[in-house]
């Protein structure tokens, strides 16, 4: 899957939940959203290419959520 495209989509999710005052809750919600709505190949692609994704601009909050996913996998 195209990593820059996934980064854009993931950052959009992050921007929505960043309105939560509680950052930890936001991180959980982002991870939960990716888990519930992204096909595994999309999740795997971003988890396995996290360094590239961060270089492409993945926000720190979303990166933290992706690490949670990678840890669960």
């Amino acid at each position: 899957m195209d990593i820059p495209h996934l980064v854009k989509m993931a950052n959009q999710i992050g921007e929505f939940f960043s309105a939560y005052p509680d950052a930890e809750l936001a991180r959980q919600e982002i991870a939960g959203h990716l888990q519930r709505f992204w096909d595994p190949r999309m999740r795997n692609a971003i988890c396995e290419n996290l360094a590239q994704a961060e270089a492409e601009g993945l926000s720190p909050l979303v990166a933290a959520a992706v690490r949670t996913l990678a840890h669960q996998a």
Binding site: M1, D2, H5, R36, F37, W38, D39, R41, M42
Partner: peptide
């Protein structure tokens, strides 16, 4: 979950 239509194209 599976692929959504735009994800299918990707």
């Amino acid at each position: 979950p599976g692929l959504r239509i735009p994800n299918m194209f990707e």
